[in-house]
Amino acid sequence: MTLLNIFQTLFITIGCLFFLIGTIGLLRFPDVLTRIHALTKADNLGLGFIVIGLIPSMSTAADIAKLIVCWVLILAASSVSAFLVANQHIKKSKEFKDHDVV
């Protein structure tokens, strides 16, 4: 096992751990906003670690670029969708408060 392998294994394992933590948060946290928080923060970080861990096994610069583009796109998509979900949630809960339902 070369040093590079150890480095890769380490990073990917850390990435997976973050995903695990994010999933536990998703399941255990009490409401929508905290769940989004757990999911987006932990998962985006985990993804970053995995991408860094994968980069050494790519053969060409183009492949590395593709990996990074994937990462950036997922970051953008997940942050925007998290924002939309949160936005909707806040709107809904405001409506409920107006009707004194909660």
């Binding site: 796109l73 953008a76 998509a77 925007v80 924002f83 939309l84 936005n87």
Partner: peptide
């Protein structure tokens, strides 16, 4: 939301 619109324009 403006955020969605700008993401769409990017994508």
């Amino acid at each position: 939301p403006a955020l969605l619109t700008s993401l769409v324009r990017l994508l």
